[in-house]
């Protein structure tokens, strides 16, 4: 029993990391209409930039911020110089996916070329442990959970309360009509890449903190779990992505305690198949961004 309770703690941390990443991925798709398979590459590139800073003696939480800035810049540039030009040419959705796949390959291998084949780890202090019975969380883990709650709150406020959020919702529903209502959708989309890119970078650093060590291809499998929680929650639905992340984070970690951690992603995949069979539109359908 204890091991299950302990694994719930891991599950909450994984769910937090997953939630940040899934919200970003699903917003990219919902608002800009690109299924961005370079997401894992951007995560790892940002996490690696945080490593460089951290390695120079900077605190890891500042490293997380650096990863956020790096992710924002990389994603913005990808949109500005690759995705937007291809979209202007009316590239089909599947063509866009091939483009992002190629970008992901390039990013991952840039990291490999610079960082080399060995895994690296952040220098960080897990801090004191908070324990309630078998349920334990380190200060670092609590920090990660708090970070994801803050981000969830900020995304909610962005979408519901700000003008940009309103424009994002309109662009997500019907970009042509948004333009006809005077909304500059290209700027909205550029802002979306900045914001979701920041989240992607942050999630990359958080993922690296959570997994202890990481290398250039570490995010490949995690991207599968991200895609699973995005589809489980309902594609393009930020709240659905949060729910999917919570579900998959908990289930994969708890199942890891029972079976072996080797099949975490397989469990995520099976849940995805189950949800697709029973509720193809995802848990939260149609609420839109």
């Amino acid at each position: 029993m204890d091991i299950v309770i302990a694994s719930v703690g891991f599950g909450l941390v994984t769910a937090s990391v997953l939630a940040i990443a899934s919200v970003a991925f699903t917003m990219q798709f919902g608002i800009t209409d690109v299924l961005n398979l370079s997401f894992g590459g951007v995560m790892i590139a940002s996490a690696f930039i945080a490593y460089v800073v951290n390695n120079a003696g900077v605190n890891i939480w500042i490293g997380v911020l650096v990863a956020g800035v790096a992710g924002a810049i990389i994603s913005y540039l990808i949109n500005r110089f690759v995705l937007t030009p291809f979209k202007r040419r009316n590239t089909s959705p599947i063509g866009m996916v091939i483009v992002t796949l190629a970008l992901g390959l390039i990013l991952e291998n840039l990291v490999l070329a610079v960082a080399g084949p060995n895994n690296v780890s952040y220098a960080m202090n897990s801090g004191p442990t908070l324990a309630v019975g078998a349920f334990e969380l380190t200060a670092l883990q609590i920090g990660m959970i708090a970070l994801s709650l803050i981000i969830a709150g900020a995304i909610h406020a962005l979408l519901r309360l700000t003008r940009l959020g309103k424009a994002m919702r309109a662009t997500s529903c019907n970009a042509g009509l948004a333009r006809a209502s005077g909304i500059r959708t290209e700027r909205v989309i550029a802002s979306t890449w900045l914001i979701t890119g920041a989240l992607c970078g942050i999630s990359g650093a958080a993922f690296a903190m959570n997994s202890g060590s990481f290398g250039s291809s570490s995010a490949e499998l995690f991207l599968v779990v991200i895609i699973a929680s995005v589809f489980v929650g309902g594609v393009g639905q930020p709240y659905g992505a949060m729910l999917g992340a919570l579900l998959l984070g908990l289930v994969t970690e708890v199942s890891a305690a029972f079976i072996t951690p080797d099949y975490k992603e397989v469990i995520a995949f099976i849940i995805l198949l189950g949800v697709m069979a029973l509720r193809p539109q995802g848990l939260i359908a149609r609420a839109t961004v």
Partner: peptide, 20 residues
């Protein structure tokens, strides 16, 4: 080690983008 294969993959990715 791994630098040459990494560069190969990078060029493969670039070739896809350039051709598309």
């Amino acid at each position: 080690a791994g630098l040459v294969p990494a560069l190969e993959w990078i060029v493969t990715g670039l070739l896809i983008l350039v051709f598309l």
